[in-house]
Amino acid sequence: MTRAWLLIAVLAVWAAPLQAQDGVPPAPYANVQLADPAQEAKAHALMLTLRCLKCQSQSIADSDAPMAGDMRSLVRERIAAGEDPEAIRAWLVERYGDYVSYAPRVTPLTWPLYVIPLVLLAAVGLVLRRRLRKGDSA
């Protein structure tokens, strides 16, 4: 009996904030995996690299926000329809800009991200050559 009362109490506390969120069940594939494991793996890999727009810094694979659920469903449905993951990413970037993707593209604004590692690589090579070759003569 006490258990039942406690359940009601918990549900009352529980239901209120959830109700405030929204009243509609999540999109069909928000929390449901695709039947084909290969497709699901593709979808999951893509979801890990898409940013949840409502959250501070989480991928849509790692978020409870309803909008992240809708985005997961969108990704899974499109993968199931045979669309290429990168095409889905491009579709989202076309709508939200580069912010939505954790995998930065090479653009006039982001090329240093990829040039700096190359510069570092060159610098590393140079330092090692200078330091290590000089020593050889000793």
Binding site: A27, L53, P66, M67, D70, M71, L74, L92
Partner: peptide
Amino acid sequence: DDRSEVQLGIGSSG
């Protein structure tokens, strides 16, 4: 828009 289809389609995030 039960599944945020239009919202996602026009790049709205909230």
